[in-house]
Design a protein around this nucleic acid. Structure first.
Length: 421
RNA sequence: GGAGAGGUGACCGAGUGGUUGAAGGUACCGGUCUUGAAAACCGGCGUGCAGAAAUGUACCGUGAGUUCGAAUCUCACCCUCUCCGCCA
């Protein structure tokens, strides 16, 4: 959420931002609602001032055992007027907030201008495509042939976009989770967290999934939403709190299952593990000082990259352009891993700095060195999407006979297994 | 599911209708003292909105109500804790 003062005094900037993002929002209500709010607030304040003054006078008279009935009678009209204005004011404030909640974040000045993902510049690449002297298979064929992924039976018991991992497949997924958490907690300085997978609407609003993206979420019949990412519970961990400036940055790493309705992506990635209703992810979350949140974004991205490096998987980092960047984000790097079977780079991590956009929604603040209370900057990134990492391993480490080599960094977690055959 | 207790500032904790934005303490910031630190003492110390400022106003879980006036009374809801029952 943007700051209302900033919003009404920088309407041009917001309009420009919306054009760059390729979106249209009617901003007229913003100005008129804010004017109306100010007008009502002033009226309300002066009425209340009158009431408060009279109250003091009444108190004084009563204390002196004098008659106050005339002044009490004279205040009755003011009281009824206050009752008239109050609900109007509340209504305007609610409307104003609901408009603000639908305005996306302003991209950082370093974010490239562009219309879609084709215009995301590559920032860097790491490693090289593997040399496969045969036609590489896609991960779902490899997995099914090895008997470690079962899509048909998952469809039978759940539906499309679900998978059952079996045997070494299940072990591989579990190994990756432990491997990633160990690297982030022991080498990268994150504190591990295991959060709830169901949260309330307030938490979803805090991180920006609600109110705009309700259709992307699964909701239970008890008013709980299934989390689409651990970002939601972990970022909201400090909602409505004031942190100590000296404690920043605070870094959490959390494994969770993630649930997404994938509404609107019908027909995309229908086969395999790439796009699932339920998938596993290890998430990185940071609460940072506004002065160095962009340096923190770089290191967070590097932390996510370190997993791919240890696994020996070739990837590139792209900077999302203004037309592709997410609603809440001010700047996002996507890490795209190379998939020989698909002959394409695919997103395996998305690392973002939200600046104070989420902090303002979730009300997460800190005391700076001067004792002033300010909003923190929140950041997060996948470290990494586990299912897609399995895809990358199967496709990059496949052999011509259909077997798959286990990357060395993972063998400890696979009890020494070197190859899935 | 049944019975009870409670939600106050960064934290602990007073406060049951009239100068209460809210005692006291802790933490924090500044100062005195000290070679330095600690201790002690003195002072400061919430946030939003409007305003150039003075100042005004709002905020004591959330929402509604009673009243000239609500942290304080009424109702609903949310959350936490304790006991009983049931269950992994």
């Amino acid at each position: 959420m943007l700051d209302i003062k900033f919003a009404v005094t920088n309407l041009d900037k917001i309009k420009e931002m919306l054009i760059k993002r390729g979106q249209t929002i009617d901003l007229a209500p913003l100005e008129s609602l804010n004017d109306e709010r100010k007008r009502l607030q002033q009226e309300y304040d002066s009425l209340r001032a009158e009431q408060n003054k009279a109250s003091e006078e009444i108190a004084r008279l009563k204390k002196d055992k004098k008659d106050a009935s005339s002044i009490i009678a004279s205040m009755q009209s003011a009281a009824s007027k206050v009752k008239e204005i109050q609900p109007k004011l509340t209504e305007i404030e609610d409307k104003l907030r609901s408009v603000l909640l639908l305005i996306p974040n302003i991209p950082h000045e370093s974010v490239p201008v562009g219309t879609d993902s084709a215009q995301n510049p590559v920032v860097r690449t790491w490693g090289e495509k593997p040399n496969l002297d045969f036609k590489p298979k896609e991960h779902f064929d490899i997995g099914e042939n090895l008997g470690i992924l079962d899509f048909d039976r998952a469809a039978k018991i759940s539906g499309a976009r679900f998978t059952i991992y079996k045997s070494h497949g299940a072990a591989l997924e579990r190994a990756l989770i432990n491997f990633m958490l160990d690297v982030h907690t022991r080498e990268n300085g994150y504190t591990e967290m295991l959060p709830p997978y169901m949260v309330n609407a307030k938490a979803m609003t805090g991180t920006g999934q609600l109110p705009k993206f309700e259709a992307d979420l699964f909701k239970t019949n008890y008013d709980y939403y299934l989390i689409p990412t651990a970002e939601v519970p972990v970022t909201n961990y400090y909602a409505d709190e004031i942190l100590k400036g000296a404690d920043l940055p605070i870094k959490f790493s959390a494994y969770s299952a993630c649930f997404r309705s994938e509404a609107g992506s019908y027909g995309k990635d229908t086969r395999g593990l790439i796009r699932q209703h339920q998938f596993n992810k290890v998430e990185l979350v940071k609460f940072a000082h506004p002065d160095n949140s962009y340096a923190e974004l770089e290191s967070l991205t590097n932390n996510a990259e370190s997993i791919l490096q240890k696994l020996g998987l070739h990837y590139r980092v792209v900077s999302l352009c203004t037309g592709d960047i997410g609603f809440s984000s001010a700047k996002t790097y996507d890490i795209e891993v190379w998939l020989p079977g698909q002959n394409a780079y695919r997103e395996i991590s998305s690392c973002s700095n939200f600046e104070d956009f989420q902090a303002r929604r979730a009300n997460i603040r800190f005391k700076d060195a001067g004792g002033k209370t300010r909003f923190v900057h929140t950041l997060n990134g996948s470290g990494l999407a586990v299912g897609r990492t399995v895809v990358a391993i199967l496709e990059n480490y496949q052999l011509s006979d259909g077997s798959v080599v286990i990357p060395e960094a993972l063998r400890f977690y696979m009890h020494g297994l070197e190859k899935i055959t």
